[in-house]
Write a protein that binds this DNA or RNA. Structure first.
Lengths: 212, 212
DNA sequence: GTATGATTCAAACGGTCGTTTAAAACGCGA
DNA sequence: TCGCGTTTTAAACGACCGTTTGAATCATAC
């Protein structure tokens, strides 16, 4: 009873149009028309536009977080390539979500990459809460496999990992454009390999407190 | 005659409000009121809201590009720390711009970090054009100091550099939040050191074609 | 078949948006 | 002081926004 056709259609249409035009700029009239529903449908099913926004993110983020945690638990933190394993566990789920969302990396990906710098405090807070648990778990894992780093260094570097990921899924077209088609994020496997290689090396950089 | 007080006030107000609420969400009524000007002032001085947007970015981006190129020309690409020099040349100007803009990293920084994933095609195209020259120069420099990488690898890694930078200036509050104040981007020197260390190591990662 | 709750519908509400207009105010050389 | 181009002003324009309403429609259990 929870999930009518209309509900799902609205979520799909909202995801597509939020991605394409931004959350503010996508109007309920566009969304409901794109979904083949009546204008009032959003307020009926989700209470308000804000409720719709929340639902759009929750639908993708909840499974994402679960898979990230599940994969992290499977990683062997004592292995020589523990860093690569943890990075892969962190990055694989988001790439899978993108592959499965209607418009791929151009759809939910762009929306996702944009969300950290969303102007709306509401949206940011919601996404932050949704990520909180997995972030804590991964920071804990990094404490285990990178014990020689200062706490602040670990956080900075995790921040850079998130940045590279976020930028990659949000601005693929930027990369495709100035690489003149040489690089494309439409192949998630290639993007994953490039990211893991680069980020693992960055994480392995000696701590400021160490001798070179 | 080009630069009246009203013009500058409008640019300042627009920058602040675009940063705080987003470009779409900041209305001309808010902007003109914040600037102590009449509602019609924007359309008089800039033709349209789009013209104002363009002017806000140009004002900061043009000097930014010039300084990036100037610093790159001063770098010694044959030095052992050429990578660090080039990264520093790339990152220093943006940190300086942020320090000089009215609200610091919370002002133009947030706007800047958001702009790559701006929904508006217009804005993205403009910023892309504004960056085009410096991007090409830095890619050329990376070709010199990282000749062993495949062209695609170089571009991916430059993309990650841009991502870490963009994420850092756009989402400082995210970092401050889940580090519980341990890390703060309000000290640009610290942010620069952390970025250069991490990114230089990432750039130095062996090419896929190399033996480990 | 009919009653009941869930869903859809067209229409309207008040409000804000970017832009335009025509008059008023200003700055300043002649 | 006058005249003229520049700038500012108040008011209005049409369009679109998110939301609400109350009736119409639907599905289902009795």
């Amino acid at each position: 009873m929870e999930h009518t056709d209309t509900r799902e259609s609205l979520l799909d249409a909202a995801e597509t149009l939020f991605s394409a035009h931004g959350i503010e700029a996508a109007s309920l009239r566009q969304i409901t028309q794109h979904a083949g529903a009546n204008l009032a449908a959003v307020n009926y099913h989700f209470g308000s536009k804000d409720g719709l926004v929340r639902a759009v993110f929750s639908r993708r983020l909840r499974p994402l977080t679960e898979e990230r945690i599940r994969l992290l638990e499977q990683a062997d933190l004592d292995a020589e390539d523990a860093i690569e394993q943890v990075l892969t566990a962190f990055l694989t789920p988001i790439l899978r979500v993108l592959k499965e969302s209607p418009e791929g990396v151009r759809g939910f990906g762009r929306l996702m990459g944009r969300v950290f710098s969303e102007p709306s405090e509401e949206v940011r807070k919601m996404v932050f809460e949704e990520f909180r648990e997995s972030i804590d778990r991964y920071l804990e894992a990094f404490r285990t496999i990178l014990p020689h780093l200062e706490e602040a260094e670990r956080m900075w570097r995790f921040h850079f990992v998130a940045g590279a990921m976020s930028h990659t899924i949000a601005c693929t077209q930027m990369l495709e454009r100035f690489s003149e088609g040489r690089c494309t994020a439409s192949d998630p496997g290639e993007a994953l390999r490039q990211m893991v290689t680069f980020l693992a090396a960055g994480l392995r950089a000696p701590s400021r407190t160490q001798a070179n």
